Amino acid sequence: MATASALDKSVPEKLAPPLDATAEQPPLFDGTTKLYTCYTCPFAQRVWITRNFKGLQDEIKLVPLILQNRPAWYPEKVYPPNKVPSLEHNGKITGESLDLIKYLESNFEGPSLLPKDPAKKEFAEELFSYTDKFNGTVYTAFKGDLAKEAGPAFDYLENALHKFDDGPFFLGKEFSLVDIAYIPFVERLNIFLLEVFKYDIAAGRQKLAAWIEEVNKIEAYKQTKTDPKELVEFYKKRFLA
Rank of each mutant, 00 (worst) to 15 (best):
D165K: 15
D165R: 13
D165M: 09
D165L: 06
G167P: 05
G167T: 06
P168S: 11
P168R: 15
P168I: 14
P168A: 02
F170V: 02
L171P: 08
G172Y: 08
K173S: 14
K173H: 14
K173P: 00
E174A: 11
E174T: 03
E174W: 04
F175V: 02
F175L: 03
F175Y: 15
S176H: 13
S176T: 13
L177A: 01
L177F: 04
L177C: 08
V178K: 04
V178Y: 05
D179P: 05
A181H: 00
Y182E: 01
I183P: 01
I183F: 06
I183K: 10
I183V: 05
F185G: 07
F185Q: 04
V186T: 14
V186L: 09
E187Y: 02
E187P: 01
L189H: 13
N190F: 05
I191Q: 03
L194W: 03
L194S: 13
E195S: 01
E195G: 00
V196Y: 00
V196E: 11
V196D: 03
F197P: 10
F197H: 07
K198C: 03
D200A: 05
I201K: 02
A202E: 09
A202Y: 09
A202M: 06
A203Q: 11
A203T: 04
G204T: 06
R205S: 12
R205M: 04
Q206A: 14
Q206C: 04
L208M: 04
A209Q: 12
A210N: 12
I212E: 05
I212T: 15
E214F: 10
E214R: 11
V215K: 04
V215S: 09
V215T: 15
V215L: 06
N216M: 13
N216A: 05
K217E: 11
I218L: 09
E219A: 09
E219V: 12
A220Q: 12
A220P: 07
A220T: 08
A220M: 08
Y221K: 08
Y221F: 15
K222R: 14
Q223N: 14
Q223D: 05
T224H: 07
K225E: 02
K225F: 07
T226P: 04
D227M: 10
P228L: 11
K229C: 02
K229W: 03
E230C: 01
E230R: 06
L231H: 12
L231M: 15
V232W: 06
E233F: 02
F234L: 10
F234C: 07
